[in-house]
Design a protein around this nucleic acid. Structure first.
Lengths: 368, 368
DNA sequence: CTGAAAGCGCTAACAA
DNA sequence: TTGTTAGCGCTTTCAG
């Protein structure tokens, strides 16, 4: 592999000139630049990232701190990751995947102390998240995906749960629904300080109150079985319910399944709206899910751009009286996409056991 | 940040001694080691990854080359990624995400030439994949996830599609199914040299022939709509079909949906087996999908371990007559998990239009 | 078992 | 506009 020295020699200039041609950190005459570029081309020169990193203290590496806790990556998280990776690539940066348990602060400290990563993206931020302090203390700029309880002074991008819930509830209320049950994440998640669970819960209460309606909430395990159990409970508690709003991508499918088993039609008998859901997943259901589409990929892109922004103005101590751009804190709402699982509220009551007349219009009983 | 020099000074030894304590590359007396460790602890010393990388030419960075082409990451790919990241972490390595289009060789060359990555994992390997040559040429060890047409001399880990298809078909045949349709990926995928599509196709033909059965195959778009279209076509072409074997996680849900809409019961009227599917996804369906469970996370782990293996014996030119471990080529079958969508073949024919008697046993027509 | 010292390939003062 | 040069922090011969 040719080094910068080789290039300098061949071009008849000094190494610093070659370096400056590459970094653009100082003006180079066209003539010189051409010579250098020609030499680089001839030698098939490529800068050595490690050497550059050591000398400049910039690794062009961003750490993506994954939770790796329980529910693995869902479609939304995956979209986030690919969005972030794409944005990093576009900026000449690279994304490193770090499966670090949220409570393994020591591993995180190790990682950050190696000076490998210039900045870090924290996924699955919890309301009280110690990782933030650890990284800050080590001088690693962070960007939160989600936010802590009190995110003062911390840059973040998160889903606007308030807005999202409000829009979802408004959609249902607009369709005439009055009795709406909210199926949330598990009690365990809520207790663990899982922001989305807590925030949507509060938002749901507020939204329902705003409409003068009585909120009903049920915590479900993050699984199809959890969804089935939740809807069963819901029907028992509120036989008059006409709509379900569900966080928790996995549970939704259980809800749909259980409704079908009980002979309840969606959306004729019960409407279902899924929160924070990717279109791909929404399309898997039949009919396709009316859902609040999560801005996964967009959030990933924004997160990286903001972090790079911060890095670029953190490093060079140019302009002592720099206008110190305000900390970036942004909420993105999920957008309602009406598909096949939401419709006008039914007016007739269901039978007592939560079952209902099956559809008989389709197919014909021709089997022998 | 304390440097190795600081540690050496405090411990009263030379920097090389400190280095050797860290790397273990040469024996150090217990006394000296203790002094050094104490000093490191006192100074809260952490080695600088860039400096180490520059000096040793080992970055502890592995590149994960994602396709980023069309269908984003599915559950199986995601499991693979997290499995790989976990294995890398465990070995003190890091995984870098590189969204490089499979045909953007120039970008790949750039990336590999920077000497940032020690090795690369190629995902979504195509039957003819130029990325392999590019990387080899640049001296970057590769590990394939999937395999090219002729993988001679290339280390890989891939799904054993032959075995998987054989097992799936055997399961269905064992249940009495004779008329089985295989719903594959899109014609576009097949033409593009997408290995899984081609290999399962061949395997299906062979398996059906082996049972003396007539194979029927349909290419479907990777979406629920594609699945719906495929099953419609299938029912038109073969009204006597009793089972569907489906590649293509998205299409499966369309198939199930369309069957339900037509009043066909699963598995009573038609059995459905999903190929290369993650348990999480299988559980979303109601009833849960009988599926060939993909070894996503395991493959990820193996891929990393094999690559690290190769790195460790590629670098040190110790033992000139090293036994040159054979190239690692491994196929992992998906394992059958029988859930709710497969059952004994029905004996009565369906109606001509592919519809069937709906279930009337459930629920009761109590609605006014 | 340990030390001294020469780099690894590049950046960024400092100097001209 | 360009060159000189001192590191960046660590690994790894080469000596002892």
């Amino acid at each position: 592999m040719a080094t910068m020295n080789d290039v300098a020699k061949l071009a008849g200039v000094s190494v610093s000139t070659v370096s400056y041609v590459l970094t653009g950190a100082r003006p180079i005459s066209q003539r010189t630049r051409d010579k250098v570029l020609a030499a680089m081309h001839e030698l098939d020169y490529h800068p050595n990232a490690m050497a550059r990193g050591l000398a400049s203290r910039r690794s062009t590496l961003l750490g993506l701190l994954l939770p790796m806790d329980e529910r693995g990556l869902g479609a939304t998280e995956t979209a986030f990751v690919t969005g972030a990776a794409g944005a990093a690539s576009a900026a000449g940066y690279h994304l490193m995947l770090h499966p670090v348990a949220a409570n393994d602060l020591e591993a995180l400290r190790q990682l950050a102390s190696r000076r490998l990563l210039e900045g870090a993206l924290l996924m699955e931020v919890r309301l009280a998240d110690e990782r933030v302090q650890v990284l800050r203390q080590l001088g690693v700029p962070v960007m939160l995906i989600g936010r802590t309880d009190d995110p003062t002074g911390l840059p973040y991008v998160d889903i606007d749960f308030d807005q999202t819930v409000r829009d979802a509830v408004a959609h249902l209320v607009g369709l005439g629904h009055r009795r709406i049950v909210y199926v949330n994440h598990s009690p365990r998640s809520i207790d663990a300080g899982y922001g989305p669970a807590r925030r949507t819960q509060d938002a749901f209460l507020a939204a329902m109150n705003g409409h003068g309606l009585i909120p009903l909430m049920i915590a479900a395990e993050d699984s199809a079985a959890g969804g089935r159990a939740a809807i069963s409970t819901a029907l028992a508690q509120a036989p008059d319910l006409t709509a379900v709003l569900a966080m928790n991508e996995s549970a939704v499918f259980g809800i749909l399944g259980e409704l079908a088993v009980r002979g309840l039609r969606v959306p004729d008998d019960v409407s279902v709206v899924s929160m924070v859901t990717s279109p791909q997943v929404a399309e898997l259901a039949t009919p396709a899910l009316t859902a609040m589409t999560s801005p996964g990929s967009t959030m990933g892109r924004i997160a990286v751009e903001v972090l790079l922004q911060a890095l670029s103005q953190g490093q060079p101590e140019i302009q002592p009286e720099a206008p110190a751009r305000p900390i970036h804190q942004q909420l993105l709402p999920c957008t309602l996409e009406v598909r096949g699982t939401s419709g006008p509220a039914r007016v007739e009551p269901l039978t007592l056991d939560g079952r209902h007349r099956p559809r008989t219009e389709r197919g014909s009983p021709l089997r022998s």
